[in-house]
């Protein structure tokens, strides 16, 4: 589904990603871990098409197409969804408006009929109930005045309604209490399926206890320095990220090929 080859990217002239290789197949859940500043969030933003991140090398294929050539909205309509680390507040635009515009945009793109108001509300309310969100939240401005946990729930709600093929979750677990974590994890697990893939970017392995990944990759200084299974996350939890520094140094040679 997603093939990343030697991806390099800079922010304001400073190289952040220094050659990422990663393959994600339909049905898989990958976790990308790493210390602060390792490039995890940059990777997620580049995949979603954020301006200001300059791709200086490499390529990304999504369902066989050149992902980097697509505008952010086209990526979204093709089924790429980014759950933001810091969801943006948009005063004056209601959640209902955004959800409906987004959903019908995706449906039009896929050649499906737009949902009318009734069907839309039924769909959204059902998902909100699952996320433990109050109905009035629909008519509030997007993320405005939301607590950290509410914002993260709102991201997962959007994901559930839009049903992406490839979900990129950027530090979705940060700022969540244990109950909210469970709700969010349930939302992600409900997304799992043979046609979909999930890439979770996270600093801690906490979320991985609730959403068990098929693969874990460790990012350090803009490269994937280790790949493995679920156990790798536990090892990181025990040993921290300090031991990786040597592994990421430029003289350490080419990064290990991402699994599988």
């Amino acid at each position: 589904m997603l093939e990343i080859r030697n991806l390099q990217a800079s922010v304001e002239g400073k190289p952040i990603l220094r050659g990422i290789d990663l393959e994600v197949k339909a049905g898989e859940v990958h976790a990308i871990m790493g210390p602060n500043g390792s490039g995890k969030s940059t990777l997620a933003q580049v995949l979603a098409g954020r301006e200001g991140y300059e791709v200086t090398g490499g390529e990304v294929r999504y369902l066989g197409h050149d992902l980097l050539a697509m505008a952010p909205e086209v990526r979204a309509r093709e089924g790429v969804f980014l759950a933001f680390q810091y969801p943006v507040e948009i005063p004056g635009v209601s959640n209902a408006y955004l959800l409906k515009a987004a959903l019908n945009g995706v449906r039009r793109h896929r050649g499906l009929p737009e949902l009318d108001a009734m069907d839309f509300l039924a769909l959204v309310r059902q998902n909100m109930k699952r996320m433990g969100m109050a109905d009035d939240m629909l008519y509030r401005s997007v993320n405005e005045g939301f607590s950290g946990g509410e914002k993260k729930r709102n991201e997962i709600l959007q994901m559930s309604v839009l049903e992406p093929r490839l979900a990129l979750l950027d530090e979705t677990d940060s700022g969540l209490d244990i109950d909210a974590l469970q709700v969010v994890a349930d939302g992600i697990n409900a997304m799992r399926g043979p046609e979909r893939a999930v890439v979770m970017v996270t600093h801690y392995q906490r979320l991985l206890g609730h959403v068990v990944p098929d693969f874990v990759h460790v990012l350090s200084q803009g490269r994937i320095v280790r790949s493995g299974g679920r156990d790798l996350a536990l090892e990181l939890e025990e040993r921290g990220y300090g031991w990786l520094d040597g592994a990421a140094a430029p003289q350490a040679g080419p990064p290990e090929r991402a699994a599988p």
Binding site: A48, G49, R50, P72, A76, L82
Partner: peptide, 11 residues
């Protein structure tokens, strides 16, 4: 805000 909306599929 613009990027957030575009990342949700709005032109």
């Amino acid at each position: 805000q613009l990027f957030y909306l575009r990342s949700r599929g709005l032109e």
